[in-house]
Computed example of a mutant assay.
Amino acid sequence: MKLNVYLAGEIHTSWREEIIAECEAQKLDITFTAPVTDHGASDDCGVEILGAEEDKFWHDSKGANLNSIRTRKAIKDADVVVVRFGEKYRQWNAAFDAGFAHALGKSLIVLQMDEHQHALKEVDAAAQAVCSTPSQVAKCLSYVLTGQLG
């Protein structure tokens, strides 16, 4: 079996690299995709490609719309969507990605800190697994692929 896994959410820490490294060390047959994680490129892609905007709302709208092409494609193609809710910022986009994945019937793994359990209870209720570390996510993916513990 092979899995396509989309790694959605927070872009300010190395959680994606940790999951990928652990899965590669186990030689798991997984293709990972992700949003653009260069914050500046993600924020400014719309105006860089389509032209400047004086109003910040339209600046952000152009970028969000352009980024949504990648996000929609990746989530639709994914077998499993992992959504990370980080510590520093409110990731409204992560919640949106989780809801979109759930609406499409995708398997969902949430990665969050324990102190966010109450705030994310509805998202957690839609998930097949709720993890607190990248290693737990990698172990979930390993189990799904191999059917074995450890």
Results as ranks from 00 to 15, higher is better:
1 M>I: 11
3 L>C: 13
3 L>Y: 14
4 N>Q: 11
6 Y>A: 03
6 Y>E: 07
9 G>F: 13
9 G>I: 10
10 E>P: 02
10 E>C: 13
12 H>I: 13
12 H>W: 10
13 T>L: 08
14 S>P: 11
14 S>D: 15
14 S>W: 14
16 R>L: 05
16 R>K: 03
20 I>Y: 03
21 A>E: 15
21 A>I: 07
22 E>A: 12
26 Q>E: 15
27 K>H: 14
32 F>D: 11
32 F>H: 01
32 F>A: 01
33 T>F: 02
33 T>M: 04
34 A>M: 01
38 D>G: 09
39 H>W: 14
41 A>F: 08
41 A>Y: 00
41 A>N: 03
42 S>C: 10
43 D>A: 09
44 D>E: 14
47 V>S: 15
48 E>D: 12
48 E>C: 01
49 I>V: 13
50 L>A: 01
51 G>D: 08
54 E>R: 04
55 D>T: 00
56 K>P: 09
57 F>N: 05
59 H>Q: 07
64 A>P: 04
64 A>V: 03
64 A>H: 02
65 N>I: 05
66 L>E: 00
67 N>A: 08
68 S>Q: 05
69 I>Q: 04
70 R>D: 04
70 R>S: 03
71 T>P: 00
72 R>I: 11
72 R>A: 06
72 R>F: 08
75 I>D: 14
76 K>P: 09
76 K>Q: 10
76 K>T: 07
77 D>E: 10
78 A>V: 10
80 V>K: 04
81 V>K: 06
81 V>N: 10
81 V>P: 10
82 V>K: 09
82 V>N: 05
82 V>P: 07
83 V>K: 11
84 R>H: 14
84 R>C: 11
86 G>I: 10
87 E>I: 15
87 E>S: 14
87 E>N: 11
88 K>M: 14
90 R>G: 12
91 Q>K: 06
91 Q>G: 13
92 W>S: 09
93 N>P: 03
94 A>H: 13
96 F>D: 03
97 D>M: 08
97 D>V: 06
97 D>P: 04
97 D>K: 01
98 A>G: 11
99 G>K: 14
99 G>M: 15
100 F>A: 15
101 A>I: 13
102 H>A: 15
102 H>Y: 15
103 A>L: 07
105 G>E: 11
105 G>W: 06
105 G>P: 07
105 G>Y: 07
107 S>I: 04
110 V>N: 03
111 L>S: 02
111 L>Q: 01
111 L>D: 07
113 M>D: 01
113 M>V: 05
114 D>H: 11
118 H>R: 11
119 A>V: 10
120 L>Y: 06
121 K>L: 15
122 E>M: 12
122 E>T: 05
123 V>W: 10
123 V>I: 15
123 V>P: 14
126 A>G: 09
129 A>G: 03
129 A>E: 00
130 V>N: 06
131 C>Y: 04
133 T>E: 07
133 T>H: 02
134 P>T: 04
134 P>Y: 00
137 V>C: 08
138 A>F: 06
139 K>L: 05
140 C>V: 08
141 L>N: 00
141 L>H: 06
142 S>D: 08
144 V>K: 02
144 V>C: 00
145 L>F: 05
145 L>T: 07
145 L>G: 05
147 G>C: 05
148 Q>I: 08
148 Q>W: 12
149 L>N: 09
150 G>D: 06
